[in-house]
Amino acid sequence: MTMRFESAKPVFSEVRGMSHEKKLKPDHSLIGLLPAFCSLVVIAVAAVIFGRQGVAWTATLVFAGFTGFAFTAQRRSGSLSYIASVVYLLTATLALASAPDSVFGFRDRTVFNLFKVLTLPSIATLLYLMFTRRAKWRGRDILELAAAPVDELGDGFTERPYPSGKADYSWDEILGFARFCGKHMISLPYIESERVYLVPVRMGKEFGHLWNVSRNISKDTWVCFDSEGNVTVNISKDDYYLYRDDLSFDQLCDSLADVYVEFLDLYRRDLTVRIIDRLNSVKIGFFS
């Protein structure tokens, strides 16, 4: 089945000589480190107030909390990298809890040493996933790809969604594509009875999506595929002003829809590796 999409502009992969000159402003945000920073502060405060045993208990509880969050994130997104996070955080939690004079109250270090050793491969796995961009939300990559074919400037931002056209797909295909996007952290799917919203989540912004189950996404950036084949795009004000220039807004919306429609086409042709290749070709940093 061929894709039918009402767009006269070339899709991003057809833009000749697509340069790697970034159209997004550089990302210097440290918000992704906020949970780690907060944890350190909490543990430091516990150390001052309760001493060594307080540190052990607090660190264990913090790690246990993050294990729960990572588990929730894995259930929500289906991403494999969150399994690695859960394993790492769980082994670290058990290691902290089994340390001498800690939560479990063990006297010797046998169990502690066992979990400590088990933590090392899980950290290595996690680092591998990070540096191969498998543990990275691809929101910025998607936004960069969408901007690649848009050279016209003109601002024109509006908070209205953009009806981008129609595409041919079955409901099962779009559901499968949505799961694929979640699993590979390309976008977080929000599935309704007759619509699938794919939200390109930027690194550091994932917490609000993963742990807020009733989040209202109407003001977020998304591409919506409905059961009748309509493709609708919404670009949030925050995301639009991440670009260095005021790109032509309707073209940008069209281009964002094109990115997803082309990814859907690749998914249907079982060329999912090409989707990852396209995202990696943008060369956005590991943590942005």
Binding site: G154, D155, R160, P163, S248, F249
Partner: peptide, 10 residues
């Protein structure tokens, strides 16, 4: 109708 209204620079 408003949903399909052209954007400001369209």
């Amino acid at each position: 109708f408003l949903f399909h209204l052209p954007f400001p620079n369209a």
